[in-house]
Design a binder for these strands. Sequence first.
DNA 1: TGCGTTCGTGAGAGCGCTCTCACGGACCCG
DNA 2: CGGGTCCGTGAGAGCGCTCTCACGAACGCA
Lengths: 347, 347
Amino acid sequence: MTTAPRKGTRARLAPTLEEVAARAGVSRATASRVLRGDARVSERARDAVLEAARAISYVPNLAARSLVTGRSDSIAFLVEETEERMFADPFFLGMLRSAQEAVAEAGLQLVFTVVSRPEDQQRFLAYAAGGHVDGVLLLSLHGQDRLPQRLEALGVPTVLSGRPLSGRRRLWYVDADNAGGGRLATAHLLATGHRRVATVTGPLDMCAGQDRLAGYRAAVEADGRPYDESLVSVGDFTAAGGHAAALSLLERHPDVDAIFAASDLAAFGVVRALRESGRVVGDDVAVIGFDDIPAAAEQVPSLSTVRQPIPALGATMARLLLDRIEGRVDRPRRTVLPVELVLRQSA
Amino acid sequence: MTTAPRKGTRARLAPTLEEVAARAGVSRATASRVLRGDARVSERARDAVLEAARAISYVPNLAARSLVTGRSDSIAFLVEETEERMFADPFFLGMLRSAQEAVAEAGLQLVFTVVSRPEDQQRFLAYAAGGHVDGVLLLSLHGQDRLPQRLEALGVPTVLSGRPLSGRRRLWYVDADNAGGGRLATAHLLATGHRRVATVTGPLDMCAGQDRLAGYRAAVEADGRPYDESLVSVGDFTAAGGHAAALSLLERHPDVDAIFAASDLAAFGVVRALRESGRVVGDDVAVIGFDDIPAAAEQVPSLSTVRQPIPALGATMARLLLDRIEGRVDRPRRTVLPVELVLRQSA
DNA sequence: TGCGTTCGTGAGAGCGCTCTCACGGACCCG
DNA sequence: CGGGTCCGTGAGAGCGCTCTCACGAACGCA
């Protein structure tokens, strides 16, 4: 096992189906049928093949299989963020978990890839289009990134997390009702007597950021107020971004009495800024976040927030992609899942 | 593009090398040479092939290539933890980042897989042994888990993060000097006048947990004191585990004046327990952690800790695996990287 | 001028599997 | 008892690529 492998060959010559078949005294075709679980095989042949395969530790060569079937039986979970941001945001964790479960249940392998630099994108494209995966679950799409279009053009089925900003004609996606959530949160703040309701947005090159802001604006205007841009401070879904955005907001409007933050992490940053300025969260200033990550309930004071159905989002993405790969669905489908306002101490 | 694909076929028939060659007016062999960057091709042929490939958006079928070369040009980064624990621990983040960079630099694709349930392990084994990856970087090996042995037996080169507890004969690994780190931290606590120096360990089914404890013990005995098991409280590298372990420790030994925690996350839990019991960290009780994750420096008070060279660990693992795959190294190699004591406010 | 050496190229085998097709035997029905 | 249907099986093609080998042209040197 530890003899130097010649370049380009496996260290150990792997047993082939041919050898299994010979050992079991059947043809390659029959051995293949048994190992793929085809029903029309006699019990005698089945036992012989399974025993032979076990005896020589046979593992099918997936490249050879893939070359014939055109399938790899694996799915990519692709996150276009730096590793740092991905690990910092429990949203990705929840999505990964639920997608992983759904994909595993279908008997496929989920491989997780993070693309943080432009050259990574090119390599991933060749990897996916080269047939290493049957489809891609793509998270965290920014701005005018054409990766989904390029994947689709190369024949790689792709399902996005979140509505893309552009080129949405033929793209498949699963999204939460971001605008509805923004409206819900803002309307609640207005209805509970707050007069100066501000918002710390997400990145505005992402649809989720835009939509949550649009929801805020809709709620403000539905309340018969003018939309005041100075009450809007742009963040980026991170705690640090939320903190900075809140500071600039407090400078412009020291009398702000409620803030809708476009993510829970941003809300944590907002809360820190408020506390540093001597304000009491939930009393002087109400705060509502977005996502309902587990940490939201554990904050002091606990964070009111708009709950995204993260497990359902991941599972729905995975199932939609699998249905598409199997040819059970053939026209681009977009799913929008409802959100829910969760009231705690901060509002 | 959106016509229903027949089961088992790609939605769009991908262009083949044959078509590129025909379009460029050369043979398949020459086209292949150009696309793989083989030097011995005339400029005229090269240009024609590249132009033809571009024109029809040719992407090589990696399954076909892999069938011939026996290589997939991708590496698995495998974490045997639940998704939650993996995301909660910045150690994995740092390892992923540095491994990803080293692998990308060599032109290979890194795929990241998390195995949290026993059935996942079986699927991964078939995936890896089936030739989808050329090697595996395996993190977070617990107890008697035989996965590395099984991978090696199936011909999949594997490099471990951390020395395995058993079957270490033929296994390759990269580790930090855990025992040395434990000794360093404990010796410092003893040298600075602390009289009741306790430890909150990691999981004792992992070598890192055992070794850091062994380092603690060695330092205690080197100081001429008896090794007192009641000063040892078993944790699991998590903050919650550290908190619980510290509570039970404080119950047994209210007069403890220094604690060596086997991970920074555990140290955070210890600090919280101390604070809850009214003790002042760094004053009443000194605390030293292990890892030096970024959050350690940001705590109040900032956490003294044993710094693991996380970027070097990940990069070394990746390079060792790549060297092995290329046949540049052929005998099992184990690398142990030095650690360093970083003193801050907590000790 | 003749022979060896390089260089660029193409023909063709074959990687390990799946899948279609054809075939023989067992079975059922009229 | 003959003609159908089924059922289990094997032969063989071929997926798209890489790589070895052989060949002719161009070049160097004696």
